[in-house]
């Protein structure tokens, strides 16, 4: 352990009001600490610049996964294990379940939280691409009140996000209505894909993370949602690629157009895990595989 613990301070909030009160009284001074699976790595390495933390772990109102007729609400403190054991997530949001299964080891899955994963804002995070595909909304709270934002517009730069210093992510809402839409003809086909490319098959940090959902009607693309991780400063929705294939018949021309359009959606770089060239090529291959 390379940190000097005497320099660090942690307060444990017993309820949401207490946590929000601390955040609002000294904006930017106290850093929320949920499962700690990202912060503890930095502490161990002696690279944790923030010194004061508010522990959220005991705030029970931030736990739980609850379904209503038209949506599922995931509490910010829901862990990957919670996601993996929830029947509605398994049945209706398989990309979320797949992401939870591919994240870390069991110990990390028991501690890591949905809200923490989003607020840590790593472009290599495994869960956010799945949330983007399902059109997630975030619920943010502060002592000033609550507001909802579309997850797609939440991150706007590397580790930059639409979250004020006194705000906490308290929940994530996934709409169910598109799951229920029926009236599909015989030629209707629905596909969902989650691929984490991390070179080794477990305990990996993504080089590319790809999540997608596509509806085909007689071989023509109708609804399509694609999101990627580790290929831009934030996780991204591939709007250009989606647009290029919507209402187009799948085939080699469509695939070529989609691959080209994808270049406008992502901006991969060389880093210690992989190369820009590899990420671009494999992202295109994964898109091609989805549409083949």
């Amino acid at each position: 352990m390379r940190s000097w613990l005497a320099q660090y301070e942690m307060r444990s909030a017993s309820d949401l009001g207490e946590a929000l009160d601390l955040l609002s009284r000294w904006p930017g001074e106290w850093t929320p600490f949920a499962g700690g699976t990202d912060l503890m790595v930095l502490l161990e390495a002696g690279k944790l610049p923030r010194r004061r933390f508010v522990d959220l772990w005991r705030i029970n109102e931030l736990r739980g996964i609850a379904a209503s007729a038209d949506s599922v609400r995931i509490g910010a403190l829901a862990t990957y294990t919670d996601l993996l054991t929830d029947p509605i997530i398994a049945a209706e949001f398989p990309l979320v379940a797949a992401a939870a299964r591919e994240t870390g080891a069991v110990a990390i899955q028991n501690r890591g939280t949905v809200g923490g994963n989003i607020a840590n804002a790593s472009p290599a995070a495994d869960l956010p691409p799945a949330l983007l595909v399902y059109g997630a909304a975030l619920e943010l709270a502060s002592s000033r009140g609550r507001r909802h934002v579309a997850y797609e517009s939440f991150h706007f730069g590397y580790k930059r996000m639409d979250l004020a210093a006194d705000e906490l992510i308290v929940g994530v809402t996934l709409p169910r209505e598109r799951r229920a839409q029926g009236e599909r003809g015989a030629g209707w086909q629905h596909r969902e894909t989650y691929r984490k490319v991390g070179t080794r098959r477990a305990q990996a940090i993504s080089k590319i993370c790809f999540a997608a959902s596509v509806d085909l009607d007689g071989g023509v693309v109708r609804d399509i949602r694609i999101a990627l991780g580790s290929v831009a400063p934030t996780v991204v929705r591939a709007r250009s690629a989606e647009e290029s294939v919507r209402n187009q018949p799948i085939g080699s021309q469509t695939i070529a157009a989609a691959r080209l359009a994808l270049r406008a959606d992502i901006s991969p770089i060389d880093d210690i895990r992989s190369t820009a060239d590899y990420r671009l090529r494999v992202a295109g291959n994964l898109l091609e595989e989805l549409l083949s």
């Binding site: 070179t199 940090i205 210690i272």
Partner: peptide, 27 residues
């Protein structure tokens, strides 16, 4: 297949088990 020491200015840049990839039992 996996273990690639990344050198930057003569220093190992990936000196963690999260980025120096050794195979796990499932690999």
């Amino acid at each position: 297949l996996y273990e690639d020491v990344v050198w930057r200015e003569g220093r190992m840049a990936n000196s963690q088990m999260t980025n120096y990839i050794m195979p796990t039992s499932v690999d």
